[in-house]
Design a protein around this nucleic acid. Structure first.
Lengths: 117, 117
DNA sequence: TTGCTCCTCACGTCACGTGAGGTGGC
DNA sequence: TTGCTCCTCACGTCACGTGAGGTGGC
């Protein structure tokens, strides 16, 4: 399958797929005589995993570390650790975001009381 | 006052202050014979405003637009509009963040049930 | 003289998106 | 032939941080 089809199937833009390949996240696929990339089905699952992980704000480096490790209980534990760390980061972010929002609401309330600014 | 003192007073790193000057957010200060920047007190307030606005995730472009406009009721209305827009963006972000967190919690729960991965 | 502060470039960061300029394939 | 897909560079994005290499000032 060509890159456009893969992009449609996974919801990952072709330019992004090429970027992941260059970055080393994805193996270089076979090429047709024309030079077009020719993917098989197995990469679909990998790309969907990457998409999920990116959606959870994992960096490409973290994703690469996971994909490079051999499957097994050790990798599973490492993944679990990463996810728990990430959850803590997101919790912290949520707190920050809550502060930003209440500060902003206060500022909006204030500005409507002042004479000018 | 030199840039180091200004950095201490405002909590904004000297490298960042220079960057804001180059970007056009801050007016170029006077210079001593040595070439050192020489600030007066008035810039402290401006920098603190920038710091507050950046903390609320306003872009430098948005901040520049506000600072470039002449003070008065029109600028006040524009600022109010910007703040309300920003609040909506932050509300949206909070929703996204909530989804990310619950997805992550589910994944963590799942992985502890599976045999391996 | 020492050591702290300051100066100006210039490059790196992160994860891509977007052209430019060219070609394959039905 | 048309028009869609694909190719490879190379540069832009955003808001800085971090050197390199040099100098002022007590």
């Amino acid at each position: 399958m060509r890159i456009g089809k893969l992009a449609d199937k996974t919801g990952v833009a072709a330019s992004r797929i090429r970027f992941y390949e260059q970055y080393g996240l994805l193996p270089a696929p076979a090429r047709r005589n024309s030079g077009y990339r020719d993917y098989d089905e197995s990469v679909v699952e990998v790309l969907r995993f990457i998409r999920l992980a990116r959606g959870l704000d994992f960096s490409l480096g973290e994703i690469a570390a996971h994909l490079a490790a051999p499957p097994g209980p050790e990798r599973k534990r490492a993944l679990c650790r990463r996810m728990k760390d990430k959850l803590k980061q997101l919790d912290h972010l949520a707190v920050q975001l809550g502060k930003q929002r209440s500060l902003l609401r206060n500022l909006i309330a204030e500005i409507n009381v002042q004479e000018s600014g």
